[in-house]
Nucleic acid binder design. Structure first.
Lengths: 343, 343
DNA sequence: AACGATTGCGGGAACGGTTGCGAAAAAATA
DNA sequence: TATTTTTTCGCAACCGTTCCCGCAATCGTT
C-alpha cells in the first residue's frame, strides 16, 4: 500500500478515525494521554503521511503562494523568490512559481492556473505589455489577495511595492556629472513601461540641474539583454557619437556595454564611466565592479510577502503602495577610488 | 460567493452535478449537445473555476513535480528549473520548488513536504553532506518517482543525470598546458563530494600526461562562492606560490579569482590564464570572457524530466544513469584569439 | 443519593469533484 | 406494435481529512 490513511490506523487500533485525527493534531483536551500516545506510535510505525490534498480541500486553502515573474533566470527574480520562500515556508506555505516570458497570454494562463489550484495569494511582477486587466479584476472579485511588485499597475486598487526609480536615477546621473563626466549616453529600456519613463526622467532632470543641454541622440532605446547593451555601444560608435559615460537602464545592458567598450580598448572609468539601475550581486563579479542602484530585493520580498499575508489574514486590510529606497553603490566603474560602501 | 461549484451550476439549471461534471469534461458520449452547451455557457457566465484540489484528491495525484536544489540563486538551478517547467507545464503539471541550503535537515524537511503534498515525482540535486538515505528509501518504497541530477548518489537504485566531469576536467587542464601554462593552480571544491574528486582527478591525470610533477601546494580546497575564489588567490600570494594559470571548480570561484588577479594588476590571460568547470552564461558577461566547461543545463532538464515522466507513467521503467557531454568553450581568459565556438 | 459537569470517544456530514451503474426516455429494429 | 438498442441523465459511493454533535462513563458537589 502506497499511503496509509487515518482510517487504516483507526482500523488497526479498533478506534474511530475521528479520534485518530484528533490525536494526530495534538488535541489533548479530547483524547486521553494513553490513546494519543498509542495513535502517534502506530502512525509512526505504519509510516503515516498526512494527505495535504484532503486537508486543503476541507480547509479550502492550498497553503500555497503563487509567484508570477516575467523571467525566472534573472538574479532579481531568484533573490525575490528565495526571499519570499524563506518567510512563508516558516508559516507553513509553499510557493508555486510561474513565469510569463513577457507574454500577456502566458501570464493570463498562469494566473488562471493559480486560481484553479486555489492559491492563497499571488505575488506578481507583470510582463511588459500587460493586457490582463480583466484577469486581475477577476482575481480581485474572488477576493484572492494580490500584491504587485517591481512592475506595478497604477489603475488597480491593489497593494504594490517598488523602488524610487526617479530619484535614484537622478542621483546616479548627478554622480556621473560630479565625477567630471558631461557627455552621458543613456541606454534606456522599452518605451512602454513605467520604469523606463521614470528613469529617463531622472536622467533628464539631473542634466537640467547642471545646465547640460539634453541631446536626444544620446538616448538609445533597446532591449534589456546583454547583447542589446553591447549592440547599443557599437551603434553609438557607428553614429560617431561622442560620450564619456554610459548610464544603463539595467545591469545586463551595462555588462554588454562594458564588455564592448573594453574590447574596443577603452579604460573604465578613465575613458568611459559606466553605471546602471537594477544592479545585483552580479555587478561585483566583473572587473571593474559596476556602480549601480541596487533594488533591495530581499526587502522587497519581505515587504511584498508581509502585505500579502496581511491580506490573506484579513482581506479588508488596506491597500498600500510602498516605495522602497533603492541603494546606490559606487564602485570602480565610475570612480577610481570609491568609498567603502555607501547608500 | 468566492467560488461557484458544479453543484451551484447544477442547481441553477435544475440538473444533477454528475451531468455538469461530464459536460465540463467534454464527455460528448454521455451528454446531449444542447445540455452540454447550456452547461458550458452558464459555467462561463457564472465564472466557474474547476477546483483542482478536489480533482487531485479524487485522482490521488497532485499534478505537481517537486524540484529540490541546494541553492536557488544560481544560474544553473534557475535554468534547470526553467527547462523542466517548460516541458511539464505543457503536460499539465506544475512544479514546486524547494531548496536545501546545503543542509541535510532542510532537505529532509522539504522532501517530507513533497511526500505530504503527494507530488507525482521528485527531481533532486542533493546537498553536499547528504545524510538522507533513509528518506530517499522511504520515497522509493512509496513508489514515488525520483530522479537525481547533477549531484547524484551512487548507492541508490534510481535514475540519474550528470556530466562527464572527469574527462572534461582533463581536457580543460590539457588545454591550459597546450597554451603554454605549466604552473596551474587548482581551486578545488569541498572534499566530500563526488564532483570534487572527479575534477581533481582530471587535473592530476592531465598533468601526468605531460609529465608535469604534481605539486600538492597548488591545490587549494575551499567553498564555491565568489569570495572563496578571491580569498584563495590572496592566500596563494601570501604563501608565495608561483602560478601562471588557475583552474577552478566552479564559475563563481573563477569570478572571484579573476577579479582579485585583475585588482593586483595581472593581465589575463598573458600573466595568468583562468578557466573553470560549471560555467554558465555568466562567463560571457565578464571581461575577458571566461573559458569554461558548461553543463548542458537545458538538456539536463530535458533528460531528467523525461526519465521522471517515464517513471510516473510506469514505475517499473528501468533505472538509467545518463552522462551528458558537457561542452568546453574556449574564450579570452585562456587564449588571446579563441576559435569562434567550440565543443 | 441525585444531579450537573467534564472527559473520551464514535458517528456522520461535509469539502468539490469523478465515475460505475442503473433507469428512463428516445430511437432503431424486427 | 413489441422488442432491442442507444442516448441521456441521476444516484450514490468515493478520495482523506476535519469537525460538529451526541452519548456514555467518570467525577465532583451538595
Amino acid at each position: 500500500m502506497k499511503y496509509v490513511t487515518i482510517k487504516d490506523i483507526a482500523a488497526a487500533l479498533g478506534i474511530s478515525k475521528s479520534t485518530v485525527s484528533r490525536a494526530l493534531n495534538g488535541d489533548v483536551k479530547n483524547v486521553s494521554k494513553e490513546t494519543l500516545q498509542k495513535i502517534v506510535d502506530t502512525a509512526a510505525s505504519m509510516g503515516y503521511r498526512r494527505n495535504e490534498l484532503a486537508v486543503n480541500l476541507r480547509a479550502k486553502s492550498n497553503h500555497v503562494i503563487g509567484i508570477l515573474v516575467p523571467e525566472i533566470t534573472t538574479p532579481f527574480a531568484m533573490s525575490f523568490i528565495a526571499s519570499v520562500q524563506k518567510i512563508v515556508s516558516a508559516k507553513g506555505y509553499r510557493v508555486s512559481i510561474a513565469f510569463s516570458n513577457e507574454s500577456p497570454e502566458t501570464e493570463r494562463m498562469n494566473l488562471e492556473m493559480f486560481i484553479n489550484s486555489r492559491v492563497d495569494g499571488i505575488l506578481i511582477s507583470t510582463c511588459h505589455n500587460t493586457a490582463n486587466l480583466s484577469t486581475y479584476e477577476d482575481i480581485l472579485q474572488r477576493k484572492i489577495p494580490l500584491v504587485f511588485f517591481d512592475r506595478t499597475i497604477a489603475e488597480l486598487p491593489v497593494s504594490s511595492v517598488r523602488s524610487n526609480d526617479y530619484i535614484k536615477s537622478f542621483f546616479m546621473v548627478e554622480h556621473l556629472i560630479m565625477s567630471g563626466k558631461r557627455k552621458i549616453l543613456h541606454i534606456a529600456g522599452p518605451n512602454h513601461i513605467q520604469n523606463t519613463i521614470e528613469r529617463t526622467r531622472g536622467y533628464r532632470d539631473a542634466l537640467a540641474k547642471f545646465r547640460i543641454p539634453f541631446n536626444p541622440e544620446l538616448v538609445v532605446q533597446c532591449g534589456v539583454g546583454v547583447e542589446d547593451g553591447s549592440a547599443a555601444i557599437e551603434q553609438a560608435f557607428q553614429k560617431g557619437l561622442d560620450f564619456d559615460a554610459v548610464f544603463c537602464f539595467t545591469e545586463t545592458q551595462a555588462f554588454g556595454a562594458k564588455r564592448c567598450l573594453q574590447e574596443h580598448g577603452f579604460a573604465i572609468p578613465a575613458d568611459v564611466a559606466i553605471c546602471c539601475m537594477s544592479g545585483t550581486i552580479l555587478s561585483t563579479l566583473v572587473y571593474p565592479q559596476i556602480t549601480a542602484v541596487e533594488q533591495q530585493v530581499e526587502e522587497m520580498g519581505e515587504v511584498a510577502t508581509s502585505l500579502l499575508l496581511d491580506k490573506i489574514n484579513d482581506f479588508s486590510a488596506p491597500e498600500q503602495t510602498i516605495i522602497l529606497n533603492a541603494k546606490m553603490v559606487i564602485r570602480n566603474s565610475t570612480v577610481e577610488n570609491p568609498p567603502a560602501e555607501n547608500a
